[in-house]
Amino acid sequence: MNPVDIRVAPREPWYKYGVAVLLFEMAVAIAVSGYSLYMTFNGLGGFPGKH
């Protein structure tokens, strides 16, 4: 492992794209969580597959 001092090491160019991907994945997780929470109050009402 490179013993570079992380507190002053510049971020690599790929890093910003990595952060963009992780933000997208977080958004998907939040959307799924929101949908499940919605379901606990309203059932499936209005969503595909209505039960």
């Binding site: 991907v21 977080m26 998907v28 379901m39």
Partner: peptide, 21 residues
Amino acid sequence: QVAAGTFAAVASFNASLFRPF
């Protein structure tokens, strides 16, 4: 089964998709 599966998926999705964060 549909309801239980959807509620259960919350844990799996968050555990996977928040891992890069």
